[in-house]
Design a protein around this nucleic acid. Structure first.
Lengths: 123, 123
DNA sequence: GTCCTGTTTCGACATCGGTCAATATCGACC
DNA sequence: GGTCGATATTGACCGATGTCGAAACAGGAC
């Protein structure tokens, strides 16, 4: 599986200017749209929420399949979209693949929609 | 900067369970997906940001057209999508139509992605 | 090695979504 | 009334996306 390398996003330099602060640059808008597009599907929202709300902040695909009326390949596809958007990452442990939320990514979005500066408290 | 009053939204009832709190119900996910889908396009993100970052929190279509390389019908289409998602509303005053952001909607999203309860401090 | 289970990828299909040119509507002004 | 400028709607094109079944892949147990 070494071919699927992916640039592994650099979340670090994400200086999210709140949406209300200054007009988004075309580049920033394009980058943001990727994350938001990944979140724009009900199934993916539920998957992300299901992962995020577990006690351990992680879940395997088999856990995520219960309660969602989609075939398992479709769920796998949605998880891939979330992963490529940098919202979750995954790790194989034995038979199962565990997905975790990338909390920095969620926080970035929270800051983005924040109406004023109170949000700077992050980290 | 006293103009930034905000309609004194009833944050109280804004019971947006943060994504990490409990699994989203199918209904909640579908409702959320509408807003996020509206935000999943770079052009709409830039339009929303352009509106939100004006001094008066509103802008007419002619203002929004400058700096965005899209035809006028396309911009009008994107604004319609934003409006139908409840993210902006519009008002005609004479010849021009002014768009405003619905700040409650943005705040809802900010709370949604908040990693924990710190966000409740707003205002 | 052979099975079995969990997960991903592949092809195909139907639908959705962004964009434009053309046209329509609305309001101001003469 | 007529005309003009600003905005909205329509219709069409075409690429993107959600979904599935089938097949491939990965690891553990035997």
């Amino acid at each position: 599986m070494s071919k699927q390398v992916l640039p592994l996003n650099d979340v670090s330099e994400c200086r999210v200017a709140p949406l209300v602060r200054e007009p988004l640059s075309p580049d920033a808008a394009a980058e943001l749209a990727v994350k938001l597009k990944a979140l724009s599907d009900p199934a993916r929202l539920r998957l992300l929420s299901a992962i995020a709300s577990t006690a351990t902040q992680e879940a395997c695909v088999c856990d995520l399949s219960v309660g969602i009326d989609l075939t398992q390949p479709t769920i796998s596809h949605h998880l891939k979209v979330l992963r490529q958007a940098g919202l979750v990452d995954s790790e194989r442990r034995g038979t199962w693949v565990y997905y975790r939320v990338v909390s920095d990514a969620l926080q970035q979005l929270s800051l983005l929609f924040g109406t004023d500066t109170l949000t700077v408290t992050a980290r």
